[in-house]
Design a protein around this nucleic acid. Structure first.
Length: 434
RNA sequence: GGAAGGGUGUCCGAGUGGUCGAUGGAAACGGUCUUGAAAACCGUCGUGCCGGCAACGGUACCGUGGGUUCGAAUCCCACCCCUUCCGCCA
């Protein structure tokens, strides 16, 4: 949610930037409602002040009939005005929540993801002396993925991941925890990118996989609901999270953190769940697009001053991780239409997938400024006692399914095996190939 | 799931209808004292919203939502959460 004061002061800018992001919000109507609401509020507070005065006068003694009559009169007027205010505020809240976060200046303006900008390409597309297969062909032949039985048991877009592919997944997890938990690596990336940050390592977290409706909404990740799984109806008001970001970013709801604790850097590991509504027939082969996938997600809470640098650090970590695996990729600067409602800036990494002959999205880094924390009431107390809304950042470390697809396709051998990236070998008992 | 107890500010904790935004203690911050520190003493010390350039004024908030009342932290109802015991369970 945006600050209403900011919208009052910058109504034209807000209207324009909302439009750039593809959100049709009536700012003038919002401001009109805001005005009506404030008028009512002032009237109500005047009546309440009179009520309080009356109460002070009647204190400690039996109130006179006149006082009681005046009180009753005030009560009636208040009830009416308060009812009106409630109606106004409901409408006002609805409109206010519709206003998206403002994109930063360097976010390209575009009406669809086609207008995302390739910022740069890193590494050469993998070259083979043979025709590379898709991960699906390799995994099926080697019994590393069983989708058929998963479909029988759970439906389409589920899979049994098996054998060495499971070992690979756990190796990647270990590698990521070791990397982002190493303050020397963090320090190196901070210096390399000239960021003004501390080298605090990321703490691993296993978050809940489910989230309450109101918290999900406050994160502004509940929509589109079509893509979410509601669970436990009607007894439980719960959804399966679509990313550990949802349960990590909301964990300090209604809390004030000491500035000394900041930044809070987490690396969360969780299964994520997406209904993938409207993607029928898309990516049906293999495990590129699944209803359930495991993901390592970074989440950072910081002061407003360091929010953007934290975002850049997360982007640097993403690239570092992909480089360490030896995968070719490109960096995508997402345009206004594609960054998402709560985002001020969004960067994707797309890794080269030889089996599909294209770059595919494997990473996203989102910078939300204080858009989420305003509704969550996640704040920080600075050394001088000042209270500020914190800034949130989230970024994929690795989406395990997709990154294993990339590893299989980029490191495949002519005989249908997979070479293990060097950095992962220690975590796979020294195996160089499977 | 059953029984009992409980949710008050950064923390602990008092408060059962008006004198309570809330006693007291701790922590924190500023100061006095001290060679320095500790102790002691003095002072400061919640958040949101509305108005105001500001100083400040008003208002709301005692788990959440309703209700009773001229007036609610306090009484009533519903719900949520926590603790303990029992049951069940990885």
């Amino acid at each position: 949610m945006l600050d209403i004061q900011f919208i009052r002061d910058n109504s034209e800018l807000v209207a324009e930037k909302s439009k750039q992001k593809g959100y049709d919000v009536d700012i003038s109507q919002l401001l009109e409602l805001d005005g009506q609401r404030r008028t009512r509020l002032t009237q109500i507070e005047e009546l309440r002040a009179r009520r309080n005065t009356l109460n002070d006068e009647a204190k400690g003694q039996r109130p006179t009939d006149e006082q009681i009559a005046a009180g009753k009169q005030l009560k009636e007027e208040l009830v009416q005005l308060e009812t009106e205010l409630k109606g106004l505020e409901a409408h006002y809240d609805e409109l206010l929540k519709k206003v998206p976060n403002m994109p930063l200046e360097d976010v390209p303006v575009g009406v669809s993801e086609d207008e995302n900008v390739v910022a740069r390409t890193v590494g050469e597309k993998t070259h083979f002396d043979f025709t590379p297969k898709s991960h699906w062909e390799i995994a099926e032949a080697r019994d590393l993925i069983d989708k058929e039985r998963a479909t029988k048991v759970a439906g389409p877009r589920f899979a049994y991941i098996k054998g060495d592919l499971v070992r690979l997944q756990f190796a990647i997890i270990q590698f990521v925890l070791a990397t982002v938990g190493d303050e020397h690596i963090i320090q190196h990336l901070i210096e390399e990118n000239h960021l003004n940050l501390t080298a605090k390592p990321f703490m691993p977290v296993l978050p809940p996989a489910m989230i309450k409706t109101d918290v999900f909404a406050a994160m502004d990740r509940l929509e589109p609901r079509d893509d979410r799984y509601k669970v436990g109806e009607p007894e439980d008001d719960l959804w399966l999270q679509g990313s550990a970001e949802h349960t990590l970013g909301s964990m300090y709801k209604d809390e004030i953190l000491d500035a000394a604790q900041l930044p809070v850097r987490y690396i969360g590991y969780s299964s994520s769940f997406r209904r993938e509504a409207g993607t029928y027939g898309k990516d049906t082969e293999g495990i590129i697009r699944m209803h359930q996938f495991d993901k390592l997600e970074m989440e950072v809470f910081s002061t407003p001053e360091t929010g953007l640098d934290e975002h850049k650090l997360l982007c640097a970590i993403q690239e570092y991780l992909v480089q360490q695996l030896g995968l070719p990729y490109q960096v995508i600067q997402k345009c206004t239409a594609d960054i998402g409602k709560p985002n001020a800036r969004g960067i994707d990494l797309e890794v080269w997938m030889p089996g599909q002959d294209k770059y595919r999205e494997t990473h996203t880094a989102d910078y939300m400024t204080d858009y989420q924390t305003r509704r969550l009431k996640t704040r920080g107390r600075k050394a001088d006692g000042q209270i500020v809304l914190l800034h949130t950042n989230d970024a994929t470390a690795f989406a395990l399914g997709r990154i294993m697809v990339a590893v299989i396709e980029n490191f495949q051998t002519a005989d249908g095996h997979v070479k293990v990236p060097e950095v992962l070998q220690p975590y796979m008992g020294g195996s160089q190939e499977f």
